[in-house]
Amino acid sequence: MSEIISKAGLRELAKEWIAQGKVVAGPVQTKPGLVMYAKLASADEIVWEGFVRPANSVKEFVFPRHELLCTYKMEGNRVELANDGAEIPAQILLAVRPCDAAAFPILDHVFNWDCRDELYNRRREATTVIALACESHDESCFCTSVGLSPQAERGSDVMLFDLGEEYEVRSLTDKGRALFAGKAQPSERTAPTYMGPDPRFNPEQVKQFVDGQFTSPYWQEATLACLGCGACAYNCPTCHCFDIVDEGNSQHGKRVRNWDSCQFGQFTLHASGHNPRPDQGSRQRQRVLHKFSIYPEKFGEILCTGCGNCTRNCPEGQGMLTLLTGIEHA
């Protein structure tokens, strides 16, 4: 037995959530041909269909691009520190793609192993993820290559399936059930299975290659077109590298963390001038290594959900997929 909710009903529900003061975010038509996840001012802004996936990742609502760590105030030689005590409002991420939702449980590992990152966790706990199963894919999609699918439930509190006039509602967690309790009706209808793209590569083979062929000329050769921007990493649902910087003056200011990317030359530059990753080949290799070897070894999971955003956002049409599928012939 499944549950359904009418599309109009869901829109009303979203309006209710916004009225309750919850932060609701979802895919918005930023401009023609560009859909991005954004905070909704009104439930009408959300676009439900007609696109494969937003150009950015929804991770920003849990791991923002810019986050306050603490503020400092200096008086004479005394310093006073204060943490951001601001309450994180409950937030609902609506119509999220399964490849974005799946990133959260993957990211949970790194922000909780060894020591807990409170900044991440407090946002994560305040967040409910309502995913919308995919009904189409494009040539950049490769979720099926990394063990996910267009209907993967991983990381979602609720999963929606388009049934035409209604959505099938699969509440997967207590958080999700609480949101839809009394709002969805029981129904016999259930969405057909959508298979998505055929697998494009074997992640195990990628791991073997990056571990075993660390010095292969492939890394240089296959990444010549990379210009070293962070468009792939910043729009990736699982990339989580960050930088810590101070902003302010000698009296007061703040310490913040900002997204950073392994594709930037300065990422690993030592004070001595030595750079362990002096060129784009070694930086791209690092990205593959982190996603397909280091992370799986440490946490048992691939640090990639196959969303394809790296390719879609690459100014030169490169991205993970090109690099990974090329390994087979390397």
Partner: peptide, 24 residues
Amino acid sequence: LENRMKCGVGKCGRCNAGPVYVCK
């Protein structure tokens, strides 16, 4: 080793030498 580090607690993702996090 003296790899560049930011967080020191195995999160910020830059100090690895191959598979090991130098900070941890």
